[in-house]
């Protein structure tokens, strides 16, 4: 696709404007996160000090972590650190939040990417199939499948999957990222399946993949349902358009018409949905990670809230919100690339 120079310029300006927009929103997110997390009654110093600590000890811990300072001062300290790329030190793990994130993020990334792959890999063909075989049994079955998908509680689906595939059939492992006696593959990305693939370690790859399968499916099901629906409806819209009719009249094979012409145009709404669903995917990841004991960011943040680990909560929300706005920006840019008629 060759893009004209002027178009690129406008696009660039648009991206810059959007970036300038992002700053206040992200700042707002940190304020909200700070206010709410500090509104939770409780004192992390009491938790670190242990169940039998004396008052002096608790007071001392409060001082070392700066928890005795007034809230505005604490928030200012956070911003100050942030401006230097420092997210602060986790109260719970006693080490920089960034290091914690580095340890936990790859697991979540692996899980979400795998489910995205499942979504697209299954959702697009299913959607196309449903559109092509419109109003047949296949279409109706797909519809039932997707209505159930958007209506299933993620945590319950996870439990049912465990019950069937782990407890009764014993086909797949029920927790963790690797078998306990298996050494983790050499860290490159931190995503075990990818690392194992890069290292050519087939045994580790098989093992990591088998651990990944259930949680990834559990997380993907809702979005799989949504994407199937979207692809179906946009395909139906496109299939009725003039140029498709022309293409057919020109004697192109049906498969070619569907895959080449119609499918390309149904990509736009699909991309939008992927962007919009990102936030919910994170929410789903929290529940999925809890059910499958997947050591990722979701579990990390739940533990952080339970421990009132303020720096960790702030770091997590900032990261996720940043990812959210970036993904949406990318979606909009992609939009423009797929369909150059859109102008900003």
């Amino acid at each position: 696709m060759k893009l004209p120079g002027r178009f690129l310029m406008t696009l660039l300006l648009y991206v810059l404007r959007r970036l300038a927009y992002m700053a206040p929103v992200l700042l707002g997110v940190t304020v909200l996160a700070f206010l709410i997390s500090h509104a939770i009654p409780g004192d992390p110093a009491q938790l670190i000090a242990g169940p039998k600590a004396s008052r002096e000890t608790v007071e001392n811990i409060r001082r070392t972590h700066g928890l005795d300072q007034p809230l505005p001062a604490q928030y200012w300290r956070f911003l100050h650190g942030l401006s230097q790329g420092d997210l602060g030190v986790s109260i719970r793990s006693h080490r920089p939040v960034l290091e914690d994130i580095r340890d936990y993020l790859p697991a979540t990334l692996e899980l979400t990417l795998a489910s995205l792959l499942l979504c697209l890999g299954l959702g697009i063909p299913l959607g196309i199939l449903a559109a092509v075989k419109r109003n047949t049994v296949v279409d109706h079955l797909t519809r039932v499948f997707s209505v159930i998908g958007v209506s299933t509680p993620v945590f319950w689906l996870g439990l049912m999957l465990l019950l069937v595939f782990y407890r009764h059939l014993g086909w797949l492992p029920g927790s963790g990222r690797l078998d306990v006696t298996m050494a983790a593959p050499l860290r490159i990305t931190g995503m075990y399946t990818v690392d194992a693939l890069l290292a050519g370690d087939w045994q580790a790859l098989r093992n990591a993949a088998s651990h990944l399968l259930l949680p990834a499916f559990c997380l993907s099901y809702v979005y799989l349902a949504i994407i199937t629906r979207i692809v179906r409806s946009s395909m139906i819209a496109v299939l009725g358009q003039d140029y498709i009719v022309t293409a057919r009249a020109n004697g192109l094979s049906e498969a070619r018409v569907v895959l080449k012409h119609a499918f390309k145009n149904s990509l736009i709404p699909t991309v939008t949905i992927v962007g919009l669903s990102f936030g919910e995917l994170m929410g789903g990841a929290i529940l999925t990670e809890t059910i499958f004991s997947w050591p990722g960011m979701g579990k990390y943040v739940v533990d952080s809230v339970n421990y009132l680990d303020f720096p960790a909560i702030m770091g997590f929300t900032l990261m996720v919100s940043l990812a959210y706005v970036c993904v949406n920006l990318a979606v909009d840019v992609l939009y423009a690339a797929i369909n150059p008629t859109i102008r900003y």
Partner: peptide, 13 residues
């Protein structure tokens, strides 16, 4: 701001 906040975490907090 509210939308870009992970919703389950927000509701939880």
């Amino acid at each position: 701001v509210i939308i870009s906040f992970p919703s389950l975490v927000l509701a939880m907090a």
